[in-house]
Design a protein around this nucleic acid. Structure first.
Ligand SMILES: [Zn+2]
Ligand SMILES: [Zn+2]
Ligand SMILES: [Zn+2]
Ligand SMILES: [Zn+2]
Lengths: 140, 140
DNA sequence: TTAATCTCTATAGCAACTAGAGCTTCAAGA
DNA sequence: TCTTGAAGCTCTAGTTGCTATAGAGATTAA
């Protein structure tokens, strides 16, 4: 059995985060010691590592909740799992596309600035005048 | 003079957002009508458009606050302005790099899945077993 | 004049944690 | 056995950048 601190260390998750996951129902409440401290079985480490890995990949907690409950049904087809992963891939690609447009605009602004006085700064000018943008992406 | 609604429409910013910007000191409190409604001069539209454009480019509000106060000193050198923009460019590039690594890992997971049962799903397996990842990026 | 539309303040909520206060429990050394 | 310090407990509030709601008052058009 693991204390919350050991579990956190083993999974690479901070202690308050574990308690937070329990609070929102992502981790089941574990048994307690005589002194009311949480004691986790080995299985909790697997589950928490799964969550951590999915978080690193950008899955929102709601998606992770679904993935976890799907993984409890090993005999079902994995279509729903793959759908969630595909949605995450799509979201990731959309964010990349948006950020690349922002990168290009920032680069352009900086390249045009001759680094003189603020009154001549192309960065300030471009920010103030939307029309100076060659391309534009709406918020996603 | 513009009402808050007209200002919001003109700048493409929602009314509660304008009030929020005033609350956090990003926009100066405007004069009020006899009936206590906000009345904005034309200059407020410029300022708000500047903020909106910077937000679209991903600048955090704190950076925008700095940009605005720098733009009030036209005779100063624009170094500090360019520094902020460069920092934003760097942050954008870092996020892109991270997202591209995530994209690759999601692609790999999905490509390897034969779409059978959950017990054989490579997506679930990869999420559960960190060691299956070929590359990895720490959170930024 | 009356109805529709705006605007006002204040409060609460979102994601996904993080930090702190003030307390209790536990493990190891003297 | 006692003591000390780390680790644990609960609860609340803060983070970022808004958005939503409620209930009231102001303004405008027909
Ligand atoms: Zn410049
Ligand atoms: Zn632009
Ligand atoms: Zn699958
Ligand atoms: Zn991985």
């Amino acid at each position: 059995m693991l204390s919350i601190g050991k579990l956190g260390q083993a999974a690479g998750v901070k202690v308050p985060t574990i308690r937070y996951y329990e609070q929102i129902g992502l981790l089941p409440p574990p048994d307690r010691s005589a002194g009311n401290q949480r004691l986790y079985p080995r299985a909790a480490l697997e589950r928490l590592s799964f969550i951590r890995h999915a978080r690193e990949l950008g899955f929102p907690l709601e998606a992770i909740r679904d993935l976890l409950s799907l993984s409890d049904r090993p005999d079902h087809p994995c279509e729903a799992v793959d759908d969630i992963a595909r949605a995450q891939l799509e979201a990731t690609r959309a964010r990349i596309a948006r950020l690349r447009a922002l990168e290009a605009e920032l680069e352009r602004m900086l390249a045009q600035c001759a680094s003189g006085r603020v009154s001549d700064c192309r960065v300030i000018e471009s920010l103030g005048n939307h029309a100076l943008c060659t391309h534009h992406v709406e918020a996603v």
